[in-house]
Design a protein around this nucleic acid. Structure first.
Length: 649
RNA sequence: GGCCUCGUAGCUCAGCUGGAUAGAGCAACAGACUUCUAAUCUGUAGGUCCCAGGUUCGAAUCCUGGCGGGGUCACCA
């Protein structure tokens, strides 16, 4: 069961690295990629040529380090020349001047250079940027060409005994945005989930409903149906707790306690740790729940019917939440159907000696060479474990879709499990084994500490959504900008703003990091927030409404760019690269941060320069057009993240 | 205890995989709406980048060792 657990945990990639000592040739400069950029590539070529001619040095262009020039200095790209000093037996000033002159003379688009303490800054002609911008505006799609890859993304993966909470929200938003981003990067994506629809927890809700429900339904009580089922899960836990406490006073319990192995242990602690054993061995409620599980496995009609009924309630509730969050799935896998998968693969693996069988009949794999340990893949009684079904499900998905890669969005507490799973799939030689990725994300904490379902310290996903929308409504009413819109339109706008605040708040954090979720901050709409970015978009739309029909082509004669305009152009033209980076790292936060930076630049632009009141028709047309390009990118970027743009707010 | 992971401003987070004087937002304080939506912008203040060594021309970033938080080590899922 994937379960988005209500406890906490931290992060990802753990590699056992063996470090060898390599002796590098003296002249082998530390290797680093040139910024993936046609300008720096050209400059690098020229620098290499110059080094050859003046110093008789053979240097590969990729070994040159370029950065974007920092804001405080003049220029666009910076070559760091320290690494070249030893090779050329030169000093920063001389070498910098020689290289700078060479590049300026040779490359047309480089206007000038300046040299500051070993940093060689190159400034490009403004017209180069303007041309970049013009070609950007004619680009009709931000989607990359097909990579030929088909990737399955598994996310959400809920349990069917209680409603979705904040942890699921992070999971779902990550999974959804990652899927979109992968698509934009040219992959075909299948969105799926594994639903934990079986097991003792589900039986608890079923039993509680049978015992205490008096036949009531979500309809009869007017309750959202997954919450309705969740209520019975809680009722079971309460009844069980009462039963347990009563039992503790009885003779059996007394004698067990008196004979505890650790005499130091106080009563409260003892019974806390004994709870599970009590459930399995003494509890009448426990016995009934377990019987129900056995009946379910035996396929007893009455139990199956009840199970289907309660699960259908939960699914209906989940669908509402998914709708509200704006996500959907292409397929669903149910553990009730997959939990027996994988056994045949294990058998086959035993004959291929990938797995080994112990005397008791249990089957294991030795993963020590991967830095892991021995892992059980089949119990001695022949039944499967978590790993077994994951192996089976992976292959089934491959057969179902012919995908050549899979991404599992699962909290980082399961890092070890996925490391082992991937190692096993590799040993088995599964055709997709090279493109497996565990998108491991940190747990969500509250400012008061971790969420604990037992203590009722969980943030319910539906409540959360309601809260942010209410907050958006409150703020919007205060502002009064959209009073003239119809009630429906207004509600739609509140919805978009609220959801933007919530989604952005969660997605702006690097997934690997454990995050603290402050409910008060999550409804903030100022600063680094979703609404801040929506506001930039709305301002642009407002300008467009007032601009009327403009001949935007006259803007092409405007080449005297302001700094802030240049800044915006640079950001805009880097957009597709941002998408790529975000896709490669499976990290939507790169994209959210990019959108923030772009919106921020626009807000500054909006404050610094006149748009409709620009000094010339050319400047006006250019600025209106620039705004439209910003709006286009923001809308597209937010679309990938899963946030909609309002036209007014 | 073994292994994994995180530690950056009062708070929440960036920091482009080793480069220039470590950046944003929130909170605080001071400014900017007769003019394109002030959910905005500008400024002030706020730092021992957990500590100590090491590698390097150069370290928040890499290595080693500590300290602190979290996770994980089931015939659970």
């Amino acid at each position: 069961m994937r379960g988005v657990y209500v406890c906490v945990f931290s992060t990802t990639l753990f590699l056992t690295c063996v470090h060898g000592n390599f002796i590098l040739p003296y002249f082998c400069i530390k290797y680093r990629n040139v910024m993936d950029n046609k300008f720096t590539t050209e400059i690098a070529k020229s620098v290499v040529e110059c080094l050859k001619v003046k110093y008789d040095l053979d240097v590969i262009p990729e070994s040159l380090l370029f950065n974007e020039t920092r804001k405080e200095f003049e220029g666009d790209y910076t070559l760091v020349i320290f690494p070249l000093l030893k090779l050329t037996k030169s000093n920063p000033n001389d070498l910098g001047a020689i290289l700078g002159e060479a590049v300026v003379n040779e490359i047309e688009f480089v206007e000038s250079y300046n040299l500051i303490k070993g940093f060689l800054n190159f400034k490009l002609n403004a017209s180069v940027w303007f041309e970049e911008y013009i070609s950007f505006t004619t680009k009709e799609s931000f989607y990359s060409e097909s990579s030929g890859k088909k990737t399955i993304v598994e996310f959400s993966s809920p349990n069917t005994n209680k409603p979705l909470h904040l942890g699921h929200a992070r999971n779902i938003l990550l999974g959804w945005s990652c899927s979109n981003i992968l698509e934009a990067a040219g992959h075909e994506v299948v969105r799926t989930q594994i639903v934990n629809d079986r097991g003792i927890a589900i039986c608890k809700s079923m039993l509680a409903w049978q015992l205490f429900g008096n036949g009531e339904t979500p309809e009869s009580t007017g309750t959202k149906s997954d919450h309705f089922v969740g209520k019975y899960y809680v009722l079971f836990e309460q009844a069980f707790k009462t039963e347990y406490i009563t039992w503790q006073a009885g003779e059996t319990a007394r004698s067990i306690y008196e004979n505890r192995p650790n005499k130091e242990q106080v009563e409260a602690d003892f019974f806390k740790s004994y709870k599970n054993k009590y459930f399995n061995e003494y509890s009448p409620l426990g016995a009934q729940a377990k019987k129900m599980l056995l009946d379910w496995e035996a396929g007893l009609d009455s139990v199956i019917d009840l199970w289907k009924k309660m699960n259908s309630w939960v699914y209906a509730g989940f669908e509402q939440t998914y709708d509200q969050l704006g996500v959907s799935f292409d397929s669903y896998y149910y553990e009730s159907e997959t939990y027996k998968l994988g056994k045949d693969i294990i058998e086959e693996g035993v004959t291929r000696e990938i797995f080994y069988k112990k005397a008791d009949g249990s089957v294991w794999i030795d993963l020590e060479s991967e830095g892991l340990d021995h892992k059980l893949v089949l119990r001695s009684d022949g039944t499967s474990v978590y790993m077994t079904q994951d192996i089976g499900t992976a292959r089934k998905r491959y057969e179902d879709t012919e995908a050549n890669g899979m991404v599992y969005v699962v909290a980082d507490e399961q890092d070890y499990h996925f490391q082992a799973l991937f190692a096993i799939l590799k040993r088995l030689g599964e055709p997709y084994h090279e493109d497996l990725f565990h998108l491991s994300y940190g747990m969500v904490d509250l400012p008061t500490g971790r969420m604990k379902s037992r203590e009722g310290k969980v943030v319910d996903a539906d409540d959360l959504v309601q809260e942010v929308i209410d907050e958006a409504r409150k703020n919007a009413v205060e502002r009064g900008e959209i009073e003239d819109a119809s009630a429906d339109e207004r509600e739609e706008i509140y919805n978009k703003i609220g959801m933007a605040a919530l989604k952005f708040f969660i997605l702006k954090v690097n997934p690997k990091k454990r995050m603290i979720f402050n409910p008060e901050e999550s409804v903030d709409m100022q600063g680094t927030t979703g609404p801040y970015i929506q506001n930039a978009y709305v301002r642009i739309q407002s300008i467009n409404r007032k601009a009327g029909d403009l001949d935007l082509t006259v803007g092409k004669s405007y080449t005297k760019l302001e700094d802030i305009e240049l800044d915006i152009i640079k950001k805009l033209t880097s957009y597709t690269k941002q998408i790529q980076a975000s896709a490669e790292q499976f990290d939507p936060s790169l994209l959210t941060n990019f959108c923030y930076e772009l919106a921020k630049a626009y807000h500054k632009f909006y404050n610094d320069v006149r748009i409709l009141g620009a000094e010339s028709e050319g400047a006006k047309a250019f600025r209106v057009n620039l705004g439209n390009q910003v709006a286009r990118v923001l809308k597209h970027g937010f679309g990938l993240i899963g946030i909609e743009m309002p036209n007014r707010m």
